[in-house]
Design a protein around this nucleic acid. Structure first.
Length: 273
DNA sequence: ACCCAGGAAATTC
DNA sequence: GAATTTCATGGG
């Protein structure tokens, strides 16, 4: 049943830039330039061959799922062109990594990953997420684990999370899992809420402030108007955009944000002095 | 030794 | 209420 899913005529997609730009934490680059990852409990490898996207190990029945995950339905070159017209630095950022797309990750996974991300660095976040899956995710293959369910994490104590070494975030992870498991926080309902209400609902969780909520909305619930402001983005807006308001980017602000974040992180010299 | 990391909670003023 | 400190852990 497992085979290679092929998507033809794919443009504006760089797996490297999309899967290694800080929006997700479970894809590993392989020697051949492909990426190995687990999405919704399905382990696959993704590879670009010119303008073909190949998902190896997927079922034909999941074609729509993978097209959705990589957001293949949106014309990113049109979005990029629009954004680039708004500001010259925005144009530079979009040109730097035009193959970035905003993934549709599992909402609960995005919630937990971005709780872990606070006051942390991407390398260590990845390690913590790996250990979280190995210790508490379902075994779905040889040494491969799904992301843990809310029910499983909700039943844990902070001490039981010690092996993942996330420190003070252990109780945040458990609080998030409990509120998702018992329906206090309904991620699918939040998906359709007006933005401020959606953000407020997520912020009921201990350990979720404005920035983490914005990341969950963008990367987990595909709310493209979201514009997470972390330390890099605050510096970028202040120094490169003359303190402009993020609302200048409109309904695709989240895509603008990811171009700018990636551009800033790869040009740290722009922020020294 | 010190400082920082895709912040937010707890404490203090 | 607004400003500051603390919170684990790991790497530079």
């Amino acid at each position: 049943m497992m085979n290679k899913l092929i998507f033809d005529n794919i443009h504006d997609l760089s797996l490297k830039d999309t899967l290694d730009c800080g929006q997700c934490f479970r894809w590993k680059e392989m020697d051949d330039g492909g990426f190995y990852g687990v999405v919704r409990g399905k382990a696959v490898t993704a590879l670009m061959d010119n303008d073909r996207l190949i998902i190896d190990g997927a079922e034909e029945a999941d074609r729509a799922l993978w097209a959705d995950y990589f957001d293949l339905g949106l014309d990113y070159s049109a979005v990029r062109e629009h954004l680039a017209s708004l500001h010259p630095v925005m144009a530079d950022s979009a040109r730097f990594a035009p193959g970035i797309r905003i993934l549709r990750q599992e909402p609960f996974e995005a919630l937990i990953c971005f709780i872990i991300s606070q006051n942390n660095n991407i390398k260590r976040i990845t390690g913590i997420v790996d250990r979280l899956c190995e210790h508490f995710g379902e075994l779905i293959g040889d040494g491969v684990y799904a992301f843990p369910t809310a029910d499983r994490l909700a039943a844990l104590s902070p001490d039981e999370l010690a092996p993942i070494r996330a420190g003070f975030r252990h109780r945040y992870i458990i609080d998030a899992a409990k509120k998702v498991a018992d329906g206090t926080v309904d991620l699918e309902q939040i998906r359709r809420l007006p933005y401020d209400e959606a953000r407020a609902s997520l912020m009921q969780i201990t350990g979720v402030g404005v920035k983490v909520a914005d990341c969950v909305l963008l990367y987990g619930l595909h709310r493209l108007e979201s514009f997470p402001l972390d330390v890099w983005m605050k510096r970028a807006m202040a120094m490169l955009f003359d303190g402009s308001d993020p609302s200048m980017f409109g309904e695709y602000a989240g895509i603008a944000q990811q171009y700018i974040f990636h551009y800033a992180r790869n040009h740290p010299e722009m922020f020294i002095e």
